[in-house]
Structure formats: C-alpha cells, structure tokens
C-alpha cells in the first residue's frame, strides 16, 4: 500500500516538474520578483518551493528566456524577472503544444 503511495507521489512530482516552466513563463509577462511568484503560484494551486523556483529562474535567464533587473521596493533590493522576446516566442510555442497535448490526453483518458 505504501509502495503505491510512493509511486504515485513520484509520478505526480514528475508531471508537475514538466509543467513548471510553463507556469513560470505564463506569469512573467510583467516583471515579478521570486518570492511574489512563489506566492502567486501557490494561490493558483501550484505550490512550489522557493528553493526550486529561484535556481529555475536563473537557469531560464541563462537560456535567454528571461531578463532581470535589481530594483528597490519597500526599501529592499529585489531581482525582478520578466519574459524576454525569446521567452515570449518560446512561451507561445509551448502553449500551443500544451493545448494539443491536453486535448489528446483528454481523448485518451476520459
């Protein structure tokens, strides 16, 4: 019984991991700093560890999907991330792929 739980949990986390990039890209058409994104995703029912999101944001920036600037808000410096042009192009491609995948998947499992 525990085995099944374990297996299910590991596959769910695998499914989530695949959608994470899409979640992040979808939220960054306007600049946001890391922790506000954590909170926003949590509100929308996609909880993610800050310790996972922050490195992910850096990696996306390294791939030129995101740009970032340090800005002072509430007298604190924070790094704001936002979609670059490449990021926008990649995001719309991924969205199209997502929609077709969802409709095929629905046909299969419903």
């Amino acid at each position: 019984m525990n085995d099944i739980e374990e297996i299910v949990r590991s596959y769910i986390s695998e499914l989530r991991r695949g959608t994470l990039i899409l979640c992040v890209l979808s939220r960054l058409d306007e600049p946001k700093y890391g922790y506000s994104l954590v909170q926003e995703l949590e509100e929308k029912g996609i909880p993610i560890d800050a310790g996972t999101l922050y490195p992910l944001l850096r990696r996306l920036e390294k791939q030129n999907l995101l740009s970032s600037i340090w800005e002072l808000t509430d007298s604190r410096p924070r790094r704001y991330y936002f979609l670059s042009d490449t990021g926008k192009a990649v995001y719309s491609r991924l969205c199209a792929e997502w929609h077709s995948m969802v409709s095929s998947m629905n046909k299969m499992i419903s």
Binding site: Y33, G34, Y35, A50, Y54
Partner: peptide
Amino acid sequence: EIRTLIED
C-alpha cells in the same frame, strides 16, 4: 538573491 528571499 537568497538574502532577499529570506527577508521576503
């Protein structure tokens, strides 16, 4: 980055 995260 981590410092601002912890503060947040």
